Simulated assay, not measured.
Amino acid sequence: MANFNLSFLALFISPPIFLLIFLQLIVHLRPVKITIKSRHVFITGGSRGIGLAIAHQAAAEGARVTILARNLNRLEEAKSSIRRSTGIDVGIVSADVRDFDAVKEAVEGAGPIDVLVCNQGVYASCELVNFDIKEIKDMIDVNLIGCLNLVKAALPGMKNRSDRKPVSIAFMSSQSGQVGIHGCSAYAASKFGLRGLAEALQQEVIADDIYVSLIFPPDTDTPSLAEEKKTRPRLTSIIAASSGMMHVNDVAKKSLNGIKSGSFYVPCNFQGFLLSISSVGLSPRRSWLLAIFEVIFAGLIRVVALCYLWKWYGTIEKWHAQNKYRKGGLMK
């Protein structure tokens, strides 16, 4: 009986071990360490919210920080805030990420970048049929095209750096960039687009020791979220509550730690971790432990995902049934 149990255990464990050896020989997964002390960290959307929190933490760790946003007054307030908390002055640049020429001028004026954090974002939730087309275009332009502008402007300097230490390009995505939910069709489109950009870009820049990170925060306690919630569809709030809310400093810490470890996927909470496993596809992975975990548990996590989907679609069906009943009652 003991021999049977050992044989069964060997059958269960052997495939992951053989896969691990295969990955080591063929894929060359290896850990990466990206230092930020005394290096230039350039953060867009840095005047408030997650961007400002990352700027605070990066400055506290000894990085040379530049923050970019459109509103110069907010940038000045952010600079004063960081100085008060860390005693360090940061650079500020006012530019619109939708304007490539303005972005290029801002990047060149700030000097060579070691860590580029594309954090700018516009968020609005609404059923697509009711969305204003201009609002959709603005969201795509800021969230996706803005990142393309930033990377294109920064890459020449990052590729030609004299310091050949590893550097990073990080995109602030969202859990709406891992799974689409009701009311977030336009926003999800802009954030899902970042994944395609990040996966292809990583292949283009890996030879230059440039590591790409995709960060997936859930709802985060920021002024922007507070404004968005005023017009958010009720169904969107119910479904989004499945992942809870995080404090902005916690998201900033998770983001910066992910960047420093060169992680491609950077989830910020447990639900985000499950989503990163279930949606990993052909995305690169630089952690042996997570690679093995994915191989062993991907099927089980798919079951968990199906349970979430069952709950969400049940909520949607119930919601529409109740609205239909109310409308029918009013008509009588």
Rank of each mutant, 00 (worst) to 15 (best):
K165A: 14
T315Y: 07
R98D: 02
T236Q: 13
F131R: 11
P156D: 07
I140P: 02
N149T: 02
W319C: 09
V41S: 02
D99Q: 09
G196P: 05
I136K: 00
I206Q: 12
V122R: 14
E294T: 11
R98T: 15
V280H: 15
I296V: 15
C307P: 00
V65T: 07
R285Q: 14
Q322F: 07
I292P: 00
V97H: 01
S255M: 06
A298G: 01
H28V: 01
N257G: 11
A240R: 08
L20Y: 14
G262P: 07
R64M: 09
A106M: 07
L282M: 10
S224L: 13
Y308A: 11
N269M: 07
L300W: 12
I181Q: 10
F18E: 01
P223Y: 09
G91D: 14
R39F: 04
L150Y: 03
I145W: 12
K327P: 00
P267Y: 10
F297S: 11
I82H: 06
G62A: 06
R164M: 10
D101R: 12
Q57H: 02
S80P: 01
G177I: 08
I145M: 13
I67M: 02
A58K: 05
L6P: 00
L144K: 04
W288R: 09
F270C: 05
G177K: 07
L290M: 15
T44Y: 03
L128M: 12
I145H: 09
S276C: 15
Q203H: 13
F273C: 04
E108F: 07
V122D: 01
A198N: 02
Q120D: 13
N119M: 07
M1Y: 08
W288C: 05
N3M: 12
G196V: 05
M1R: 12
V142A: 06
K137H: 12
D250S: 12
G177L: 08
E317C: 08
G314I: 06
L52Q: 10
D219F: 09
I292L: 14
F4W: 11
A95M: 06
L194D: 05
P166S: 07
G62F: 04
F270D: 11
C126G: 03
Y187H: 10
V27K: 14
A226K: 15
V41D: 04
Y265H: 15
C184G: 12
N119L: 07
V212A: 02
I113S: 01
Q57C: 01
R161L: 08
P284A: 08
S14P: 00
D132F: 02
E108V: 10
V266T: 03
R48T: 13
D96S: 05
A55Y: 05
M139L: 11
L290I: 14
R70P: 02
Q57N: 07
S213I: 04
L11F: 12
Q57A: 09
F192Y: 15
I54W: 03
C147Q: 14
F4N: 10
G258I: 09
A198K: 03
N257L: 12
A241H: 13
S185N: 09
G49F: 01
L300P: 03
S176Q: 12
E228G: 04
F273A: 11
I36N: 06
Q322V: 13
V117G: 00
V151K: 01
R161M: 09
V248L: 01
V266F: 05
